[in-house]
Simulated scan of single mutants.
Amino acid sequence: MMTRPPLHTRRHVLIGGVLSLAAPQLLQAQTLPEEPQAPVRHNVSSFSSQDWRDHFDDLGKGAILCDTISRALHYWSADESDYRVYPTSVPRSDELTKRGYTKIVRKRVGPDWTPTASQKERFGWTYMPPGPDNPLGTHAMYLDWPAYLIHGTHDTRKIGRQSSDGCIGLFNSAIAELFEITPIGTQVRVI
């Protein structure tokens, strides 16, 4: 007559099996280097605060820093009482990225969009009225560089990526907030 092993023995076998599967991960976790790894600067978790003094002589009407490496927009109010950081989309390539100093010269709620000549040629894009398909989203702030804007996007997959033809894109909720607090004449630096 065959006897069954006691229940506690089966439990021990099951627990031992689970522990043997988990052991490599436990050992690996114990052997990780104690030194922190260099931060990855290509996602939201790479945001770090900036000091406006590293980029501007004074705050003037306010200041915006667009960091294309960490894909973040930093905003400072004129009296330095308000500092905000927003995740952005950035240009697809260095050739499309204009860097330097500029300023906000115009703002528009519900912008329409006319593609540049190269966009028409490359993609066949045509004029787009305001609305949910408009690539400029719900709000746009125009820079004194022709065809360069800070604007919203309805395609939230673009934020945090190299996805624009030169503009800085924000979530629609973020551009609406920034739009309200940013006066015309605010200085902008793109790095």
Rank of each mutant, 00 (worst) to 15 (best):
E95I: 03
G100W: 10
S45V: 02
V105T: 10
R71A: 09
Q50I: 05
H139C: 13
R108L: 14
K61C: 00
Y127P: 00
A117V: 12
R108G: 11
I150G: 09
T114F: 08
I69T: 15
Q119R: 04
V105M: 06
N134M: 06
P129E: 14
D112C: 05
Y75A: 10
R99S: 13
E121F: 08
S93R: 07
F47M: 13
D144W: 06
N134I: 02
I104L: 01
T156K: 09
L136G: 06
K61Y: 00
Y75W: 13
V109A: 15
Q50K: 00
R53E: 08
R92K: 10
R122M: 14
A117W: 07
L59G: 14
T102H: 10
T97A: 07
T88M: 08
L149A: 10
G124V: 04
D144T: 09
R122W: 07
Y101T: 14
L136D: 02
Y83N: 02
P129D: 13
A63M: 13
W76P: 08
R84S: 05
I69A: 11
R106D: 14
D133M: 07
W76L: 08
Q50Y: 00
T114C: 08
H42Y: 10
D133H: 01
H154N: 11
D155S: 10
R122N: 12
D54P: 12
G60D: 14
W52A: 15
